[in-house]
Amino acid sequence: MKEKEQMKNKTGYIMLLIVLGLYGILYFVHAGKTLQALEATFGVFKTVAPILLVVFFLMAFLNTFIDEKSVAKHLGDDSGFKGWFIALFGGVLSHGPGYIWYPMLQELRKKGALDGLIVAFLYARSIKLPWLPLMISYFGLTFTVVLTFYVLVGAFVQGIFAGKIMNEAKKDR
């Protein structure tokens, strides 16, 4: 497990070095735009930092007060309708870029949450409540309502498919 963790760290540092290298090369090709890209990155960081803080507290809370038993009960094999409800509406209500939520979702997975529910959560995130009025103004109310409905159904169906595929893969191992 520790080796896996170290490997994860190593991959992260390699990836960061590649990105820094890319910035270096781009700076020589197009200095002005590269500085703009750096500014954009800083903008992303400013957006993400407060959400990351929320995720940090949620993860700490989760690890302190919620044990494997209760995760299994609410998001595990026997969670049923309640599990899907939590995954879909949690996804709709969650804020910020999806990758911010990955560590917390992986913690839930480790504690017994179903893969299908995690996939459904991530897909339901495509409904962005604060942006719905803008979507209505661009594409109309009918389109927005229909798309929202199909995304919720799609997240549920995708979760079922993903769960089945992942279960089959686990059985084969």
Partner: peptide, 25 residues
């Protein structure tokens, strides 16, 4: 939790760096 986030921090920063590049270029 802090250690977990610390272990993914380099990858997280790399992704943010890529987002900046894509948004601009």
């Amino acid at each position: 939790t802090f250690k977990t986030l610390q272990s993914i921090a380099p990858m997280l920063f790399a992704v943010m760096g890529l987002v900046g590049i894509f948004e601009t270029f």
